[in-house]
Amino acid sequence: MMTDSDIALVARAVEGDEGAFQGLMEAHKDMVYSMAYRILGNAEDAQDAFQETFVSAFRNLKKFRGDSKFSTWLYRIALNRSRDILSSRRRRPQHESIHEEGFDHAAADSTDAGTDVQEALSTLPPDYRTAITLRCIMGYTYDEAADMMGIPAGTVKTYVFRGKDELRKVLSPGAAIT
């Protein structure tokens, strides 16, 4: 995750170097957007979370102490912004705009059966969806995901397993075993 160059870029960005901040953004923009999109389920909210995350990161860059990886710090902000948006817009219909701009369909984001990952994820409670996004889609370890979510690693594991169990039932409605 280019941690060394992140630290150098953060130091320069804190001094007011906008190019350095642009470099940080370049390195992490797709991960932040992907995380927000997987959790929020639509492009409009994901873009809001994305923008709020980077603006907040820029404002608070001085507070980044370097005791965690910059990416962990940044993704924690992204996660919090996504959660805020999720709770403030819960009344709105879910996954209304899965097929919007920014969603790369050419990348075969579905199985042969035509099941859309995003559609399946949207059926899960937010905590399960977040845990599965961090662990199974973005590939973080349980410890890293726990750090970002601010909960114990064992709880993340439980969320992942329960989430997978729910996905299993969604994907195989006729499942004999529960």
């Binding site: 797709d30 957007y33 999109y37 994305f50 923008q51 990952v117 199974c136 889609i137 996905l167």
Partner: peptide, 24 residues
Amino acid sequence: NSLLKTASPLRAPDAAVSNVLSEV
């Protein structure tokens, strides 16, 4: 698991990036 593996990383829209830069 194989369904989750098909989830490819998404690309952040250029408009979102330039909005952030102008705010910054």
